[in-house]
Amino acid sequence: MQHEYYKEYYDLERSHWWFVARERIITNYIKKLISTGKLKANPKILNVGCGPGRSSEYLSDFGKVVSIEYDKFCCEFASEKTGLEIIHGSITELPFEDKMFDLVCAFDVIEHVEDHQKAVHEMKRVAVDDGVLLITVPAFMDLWSHHDVINHHFRRYKMKQIDGLFQNGEKGRNLYYTYFNSFLFPPVYFFRKLSNMMGSGKKRKGSGSDFEAFNPGLINRILFKIMASESTFVNGGIRFPFGVSILYCWKKEI
C-alpha cells in the first residue's frame, strides 16, 4: 500500500461504515469469548498488522496490547498519530518468544502474505497453551476487484481454505467461524462485477479502493447499521453461509 493511503485509512478506520461495523462485530465477539470463559479476562494481546492503529485502540479495552506492523512508514505514522508503541516486524517472523500471548489477532492481514501458512504457524507459536487466535479475511475470489489489487492482496478465501490453514499442524480446534457482511453481499457482488467490467477501479483517484467513494452521511449510517446488526447473529452462534468477509476463531490446545 502506498504511503498516502495510510493517511486516508487512518480516517476511514474511524468513520467508514465497513471499518466501524467490523469493529462492532469483533469487539462484541471478544466480549463473548471472555464472558463464556473461552478467553481469560485481561488477556495479553498481540495485534499483528495493526495498520493505522484503530484496532489496537479498541483491543486495549480488553487487555494489554502489543502492536506490530510490517510497513515501516505506517509504524511511524500510526505511532505519531495515536501515541501507540508499534513494533516494525513481519507476521512470518514474529519477534517474540514462544507462548507469550493469550489472544493473537490479525484483522485483514494474511491475505497480504504470500506464505500464509507460515504466518498462521507463527501466530500459533506465540500463543500460550489454551490461547486464542482471531482473524478476519476477505472472502471469495469471485469478488476480486481493483480494490484487492490496490491493497496488495494475494487472494480472497473460502472457509475451507482458512480451516485448512489452521488445522494443519499444531493441536487446536476452531471455536467459531462464519462469513460476515452477508446482508450486503448481493449489492457488493454486483458493484464489484460491474466495476470489473467497466474497468472503473483503475480510473479512480486517491486510493482507488472501494473505500474511496466514502461519504460520512446518511448512507454511511444506514450501511453501518445493516452490517453491524450481524453482530447479534455472530454472538448467537449463527453461521452465515456466504459474505464479503470471514471471521475465524481458533483455540490452541496442549
Rank of each mutant, 00 (worst) to 15 (best):
K99E: 14
K44F: 12
T232P: 08
M227W: 00
L165F: 12
C249A: 14
K193E: 09
S60R: 04
K251Y: 09
E97N: 07
R24H: 12
G49D: 02
P216A: 03
C75D: 00
Q161Y: 09
N235A: 08
N181G: 06
K81T: 10
I30R: 01
G164F: 07
V132T: 10
R155G: 03
D11A: 12
M1Q: 11
L165H: 13
R22C: 01
F107D: 03
N42Y: 09
K99D: 14
I86S: 05
V126F: 12
K171V: 14
L133V: 11
F107T: 01
G164A: 14
H88E: 06
Y177K: 15
T82C: 10
M100W: 00
H121W: 15
R24A: 11
K7S: 05
K202V: 08
D71P: 08
F140A: 10
R204K: 15
F224T: 00
V132Y: 10
H147D: 04
D115Q: 02
F19W: 05
V20A: 02
R173S: 15
K64E: 15
D210F: 08
W18V: 00
M197F: 15
F77G: 04
I150C: 11
Q161V: 07
F242R: 09
A106K: 02
N181V: 06
T232I: 14
P186E: 06
V120F: 11
H16D: 08
C74L: 03
T232W: 13
K31M: 10
G236V: 08
H112W: 07
Q117G: 12
F62P: 07
N220E: 02
K40R: 14
